[in-house]
Computed example of a mutant assay.
Amino acid sequence: MHADDSPLPGRRELKRRQTRLALITAALRLADERGADRVTVDEISAAAEVSPRTFFNYFATKEDALVGDPLEDCGTPVIPDLPLLDALLHALTPAFEQIQQDRDLWLLRMRVIAANPQLLPLLIAAAASAEQRLSAAIAARSGLAPDHPRPPVVAAVANAAVRVALIRWAGSGGSRPLIEHVREAFAILHDLKESR
């Protein structure tokens, strides 16, 4: 067991993660070299040394491999009993740490997305999925009904702050840790609450 009591992934799960990472890396490198529109699933599969059929076991389209979901491996965040902005920052920190750990891959991803604006709607859709999970966690923490407006508004604002932090981090070439950019963005949200 890890310190957080989560079980160690089995051999099959490790192999799945490695294959998925190889496909993402191949897709991003090829798109960075040629442009996203000039890369095929067959080329991505060949670069990752798997079959196109294997590619489609992981992704519906090549664009899905390029964009990804930063919170995919984090599931629904559990929001502790802290002031809300502190609680959100705490709950999302594992995702930021994972992005920081995969720094080169994420900087490449952000460069590819910046150079291929047609990918932006997919990035927004991936963020919307994460935002829904965050909204559900906020509702569960606060005991509010699922249709209450507060959780989705808070989740949307937090998501916007994270997006700005991620763009600033990538724009600086990752010279400072992502979490510092996120803390700055959340501090601005906190200041908004206090300002008149």
Results as ranks from 00 to 15, higher is better:
138 I>N: 12
138 I>D: 05
138 I>K: 13
139 A>V: 14
139 A>G: 15
140 A>C: 06
140 A>T: 15
140 A>F: 13
141 R>W: 14
142 S>N: 11
142 S>T: 15
144 L>Q: 06
144 L>H: 10
144 L>E: 10
145 A>T: 09
145 A>N: 07
146 P>S: 04
146 P>H: 13
146 P>Q: 06
146 P>A: 05
146 P>E: 09
147 D>S: 10
147 D>V: 04
147 D>H: 11
147 D>E: 15
147 D>G: 01
148 H>Q: 10
148 H>C: 10
148 H>V: 06
148 H>M: 09
149 P>S: 11
149 P>T: 11
149 P>K: 09
149 P>I: 11
150 R>W: 13
150 R>E: 05
150 R>M: 15
150 R>P: 03
150 R>T: 12
150 R>A: 15
150 R>N: 10
152 P>K: 12
152 P>A: 13
152 P>D: 08
153 V>H: 07
153 V>L: 15
153 V>F: 05
153 V>Q: 08
154 V>T: 10
154 V>G: 00
154 V>R: 03
154 V>D: 02
156 A>E: 01
156 A>W: 01
156 A>M: 02
157 V>S: 00
157 V>Y: 00
157 V>A: 04
158 A>Y: 01
158 A>D: 01
158 A>C: 01
158 A>N: 01
159 N>V: 01
159 N>H: 13
160 A>G: 11
160 A>L: 12
160 A>T: 05
160 A>S: 13
161 A>T: 09
161 A>N: 05
161 A>H: 06
161 A>G: 02
162 V>D: 02
162 V>P: 01
162 V>R: 07
163 R>H: 12
163 R>D: 07
165 A>F: 14
165 A>Y: 10
165 A>D: 08
166 L>Q: 12
166 L>N: 04
167 I>M: 12
167 I>E: 06
168 R>I: 00
169 W>V: 07
169 W>I: 04
170 A>H: 03
170 A>M: 04
170 A>N: 08
170 A>L: 05
171 G>Y: 04
171 G>N: 05
171 G>M: 08
172 S>E: 07
172 S>R: 14
172 S>I: 01
173 G>S: 06
173 G>I: 02
173 G>P: 03
174 G>P: 07
175 S>Y: 01
175 S>W: 00
176 R>I: 08
176 R>S: 06
177 P>A: 05
177 P>T: 11
178 L>S: 02
178 L>A: 10
179 I>S: 13
179 I>E: 10
179 I>L: 10
179 I>K: 11
179 I>G: 00
179 I>C: 01
179 I>V: 12
180 E>I: 02
180 E>Q: 13
181 H>P: 03
182 V>I: 11
182 V>S: 08
182 V>Y: 05
183 R>E: 14
183 R>W: 00
183 R>Q: 14
183 R>L: 02
183 R>H: 03
184 E>N: 03
184 E>Q: 12
185 A>V: 12
185 A>P: 06
185 A>F: 09
185 A>D: 07
185 A>W: 09
185 A>M: 07
186 F>Q: 02
186 F>Y: 13
187 A>S: 10
187 A>V: 04
187 A>I: 05
187 A>F: 02
188 I>D: 04
188 I>Q: 14
188 I>V: 15
188 I>P: 00
188 I>G: 04
